[in-house]
Design a protein around this nucleic acid. Structure first.
Length: 719
DNA sequence: AGCAACCGTGTTTTT
DNA sequence: CACGGTTGCT
């Protein structure tokens, strides 16, 4: 097999097949190439059967790409490789053996919002005020426990909060079981449990998988780590790949120590570092390196490249977020005209909410864009409604989804009826679905009871149709049969119009699924839908500009990258300033974003920004100060500071900038930020008069506009 | 039973 | 600002 296209380190990584191996793969060091070649090498040169290899990736998209690339090297043989995410693998394994855990294999998967609903139910049942016991933080505590493989019984109850969380966790878990449902955390935790309690089941897998590979190992959590250890326990041919500098999922339970302590875990481990970068210019690499170099406990490595030095970075300061967006869009327009296709550029931001200004600006310039993440397709109400029907057909025990669709579209089944039904179900120890048929015995009006029976018949009827036609035809028929489309058409608003379009899109998604699935089935489809991430759906539409959060940017690359909102409070985020560990993660996030750029990197920030409803003054991100001066070119937009005082008051998104300030040089220029001993930091709005008598009007976020005499007010210039 | 209007509140990142 | 939850009205 031809390995000559690989560098010596990469070759070593490919041919070191036996025993534990840790590959430190810096950004852009050809990691995927190495993994792909490694699999091909095992099969071609070492006589390993494709089905004896199990590779774990971070996203389904990465899994698909990897499979495809191995296919290019090996052809058909690659089909029986097992490449998937931890979560998908968990589902696959659990579907096959979950009866060992006394659950049935047609379990449903509850996503985030269903988890929230369930937790709210628990809080109500336990008589806990959701204003004090925030369901969101409850959810993240439960997730956290699951990632650490902590059961409700083991959950620490030494403080007041812990005790309550343990109670909610226990009830929540019980409810999941009643619904025959698993949440994301369960997909991992239950798999570990299955293996630990059933060595014979584990053996099926350790016998089968002779070679294990785990990508993005720096972002594995404890449950995933346990899973890896179990699967590698027999042969120990475990190859993990990762980069501690790109660990950005700590908040989700990821533990960098998994990668940093690998050699302690597996004392026989060999370590290979891939340090040559093939992606970015030297300038980009040097700048990015500065951000993470001081992180404590970081594995020592030096990324280098033979690529040219390239352009310097552009660091842009804008008056407002709107100016910033206009600047970015202007640069994109220029690059587009110079021949860079839109899909070779990207805008990254820290929070989803930041996309809005950019969208406005892009729309004004007629530049097509795609947002990854944000309000996800599958989170839309109409999509969730239809999927809820499908889940219920798949598993009638699923009371949560059933409750959602009971009166959707409206069929006169109200809140009180639902409550009565729930009581009936609980008192009789039956599922909500079963309770529907006994409605007349629960003190429910005969009229309503009849409606419920009709509903049951509707579902049963649908179920019989399920096997007789293609899935996409079935979904179409379902939407008609339940009167959903009709109800939307009747509404006849812009809103309902777009919902109808989304449902058409859903049909296309199902068709797409059917065309690519080996064995299309309702269960398999629902599973895929539950586990996709936003980037998985990244269609490489040639002519639209990708926009995404920094987290979603991991693993991608673009010629020109724009990182916006490089401001204190945003990046680093204000919620990540409590501990040094959190701040370090913000550094790595910045690093990940920067190293996505191949040729040119823009970092921008604004002075003023609409945030959380109000307008705020923003300070430049501390990370910007860490980029060496000689690597950047600084820009200021708009280039000319407004002269007219009135104009600076009526800055209602006005794009008419006033004439340049032609007065003599002074440090007290309009737009300059100053610190006042009692008013704090403010921005100069007006500045006039001779040197020692120069009068300023300064806008302070806390106290508003103040007239000051420059010399007397003990001002210092900030930045 | 269902809708509309109100209030208050809490704002990261996502498999 | 945008959402969820509640209230009050029809």
């Amino acid at each position: 097999m031809d390995l000559s296209t690989l560098n010596p380190k990469q070759q070593e990584a490919v041919t070191t097949t036996e025993g534990p191996l840790l590959i430190f793969a810096g950004a852009g060091s050809g990691k995927t190439r190495v993994l792909v070649h490694r699999m091909a090498y095992l099969i071609q040169e070492r006589g390993v059967k494709p089905w004896q290899i199990f590779a774990v990736t971070f996203t389904n998209k990465a899994a698909g790409e990897m499979k495809e690339r191995v296919g290019q090297l090996l052809g058909q043989r690659a089909d029986s490789l097992w490449i998937s995410t931890f979560h998908s693998a968990g589902v696959k394994i659990l579907r096959a053996h979950i009866e060992r855990l006394k659950m049935s294999p047609n379990f449903v998967i509850f996503d985030d919002s269903e988890q929230q609903t369930l937790i709210k139910n628990c809080l109500q049942e336990l008589d806990l005020n959701p204003k004090i016991f925030n369901p969101r933080s409850m959810g993240s505590k439960i997730d956290g426990a699951k990632n650490e493989l902590i059961t409700p019984e083991e959950f620490p109850t030494d403080d007041f909060m812990g005790e309550r969380v343990a109670k909610v966790y226990a009830l929540y878990q019980k409810k999941l079981e009643e619904n025959n449902a698993l949440d994301f955390g369960d997909l991992l935790m239950k798999t570990v449990k299955l293996f630990e309690e059933n060595p014979d089941v584990l053996k099926l897998y350790t016998d089968r998988f002779h070679y294990l590979m785990v990508d993005e190992y720096q972002d594995t959590n404890h449950a995933q780590y346990r899973l890896v250890k179990l699967l590698a326990s027999d042969r120990g041919n475990l190859c993990v790949v990762g980069d501690d500098d790109q660990s950005i999922y700590r908040w989700r339970g990821a533990d960098v120590r998994n990668i940093l302590d690998f050699h302690q875990d597996f004392p026989a481990a060999q370590v290979i570092k891939l340090e040559q970068n093939y992606r970015s210019t030297q300038n980009i690499l040097n700048a990015a390196g500065e951000i993470v170099k001081g992180i404590e406990g970081r594995a020592q490595k030096t990324l280098w490249t033979e690529n040219p030095e390239g352009e310097v970075l552009t660091l842009c300061l804008a008056n407002t977020d709107r100016h910033e967006a206009d600047f970015v869009v202007g640069e994109i327009q220029k690059a587009l005209e110079a021949g860079t296709p839109l899909n070779q550029m990207a805008i990254f931001y820290r929070t989803n909410a930041q996309s809005r200004v950019l969208e406005d600006s892009l729309r004004r310039q007629n530049i097509p864009y795609v947002i990854y993440g944000g309000v996800r397709f599958y989170d839309r109400m109409e999509i969730k409604d239809i999927l809820a029907y499908l889940w219920v057909l798949h598993n009638p025990q699923d009371g949560l989804h059933l409750k959602r669709i009971l009166n959707v579209p409206a069929r006169g089944i109200g809140k009180t009826s639902v409550e009565k039904l729930e009581h009936l179900a609980i008192s009789q120890g039956i599922s909500l679905f079963q309770a529907l048929s006994y409605a007349d015995q629960a003190g429910i009006a005969t009229k309503t009871a009849k409606k419920l029976l009709n509903f049951v018949m509707l579902l049963e009827n649908l179920k019989t149709r399920l096997s007789s036609q293609s899935l996409s035809d079935f979904v179409q028929a379902l939407m008609e049969a339940i009167g959903y489309l009709e109800a939307l058409k009747l509404e006849n608003t812009i809103e309902s119009e777009s919902r109808l379009e989304n449902l058409e899109e859903l049909i296309r998604v199902v068709e797409e699924y059917e065309s690519q699935a080996v064995e299309p089935s309702l269960a398999d489809f629902l599973e895929q839908v539950a586990l996709v991430n936003a980037v998985d759906n990244l269609d490489d539409r040639q002519n639209s500009l990708p926009m995404m959060t920094l987290h979603l940017a991991k693993g991608l690359e673009f010629d020109r990258v724009f990182m916006v909102g490089m401001e204190e409070g945003l990046l680093p985020h204000s919620r990540s300033l409590d501990t040094p560990e959190e701040l370090d993660e913000e550094r790595r996030l910045t690093y990940v974003g920067m190293t996505r750029a191949r040729k040119k990197l823009y970092l921008s920030h604004s002075e003023r920004r609409r945030l959380y409803g109000g307008e705020r003054y923003q300070l430049a991100s501390r990370f910007l100060d860490e980029v060496p001066e000689h690597l950047v070119e600084k820009k200021r937009v708009p280039e000319l500071a407004p002269l007219d005082f009135e104009a600076s008051f009526s800055h209602q998104n006005s794009r008419d900038y006033a004439l340049p300030d032609r007065e003599q040089a002074t440090p007290y220029q309009i737009g300059v930020r100053v610190n006042h001993p009692s008013f704090g930091i403010g921005v100069i709005r007006k500045s006039e008069g001779a040197l020692e008598k120069r009068k300023l009007i300064v806008e302070f976020p806390r106290v508003g506009y103040k007239k000051l005499i420059a010399q007397l007010s003990n001002l210092t210039i900030v930045n």
